[in-house]
Amino acid sequence: MSSDLYLPETPSQTAGPYVHIGLIPNQAGFDIFDNNFGGDIAGPDVAGERIVIEGRIFDASGHVARDVLVETWQANAAGRYNHPADRQDKALDRAFRGWARTGTDFETGVYRINTIKPGAVAGRRGRKTMAPHISFWIAARGINIALATRMYFGDEAAANASDPVLNIIEQPERRQTLIAARTARDGQTVYTFDIFLGGARETVFFDV
């Protein structure tokens, strides 16, 4: 709530059509920084099961959005975040920051992240453990304030069934919009997580 006691947050504005220049310049077609942030975050020293997450982002008409920035944030394989506020008694993986950034492809609309499967994380006091999940944050032209959602894993049916976040979503059918199916392809484990900005299959988005 706005009041004189606190500074009001700076308002959000759309990331616009040229978000790639600033945040993923390689995709914008030019090479400016020596070190680029990206979507391949499972380096050789990172512990955990290697997975690929990929999908497309659809607008409310069903059209594939090909200019979307996608960021993800996740715990390590043991279920601990690489952040001082995480005091869980679990191993920290110093080789794993847990953050990825990529964009949907200008031609195919597919985004792809190479990471590791996170472990389960403690929930708030009095609540159950959270099932393994990855926080998504997407920004683009036409999105006035970035959208937050979570991806859960299709092969974690039991953990998902008791997840305290999935269970606050009133309609079980809508919980399914957050669950990515696991498949195998060319020796890789692939989770497909499509996001629907609107329409009949609209993804559940969170005010976090």
Partner: peptide, 9 residues
């Protein structure tokens, strides 16, 4: 066409 219609949870 890029705005959710269901209120955020």
């Amino acid at each position: 066409l890029r705005s959710p219609r269901v209120p955020l949870w």
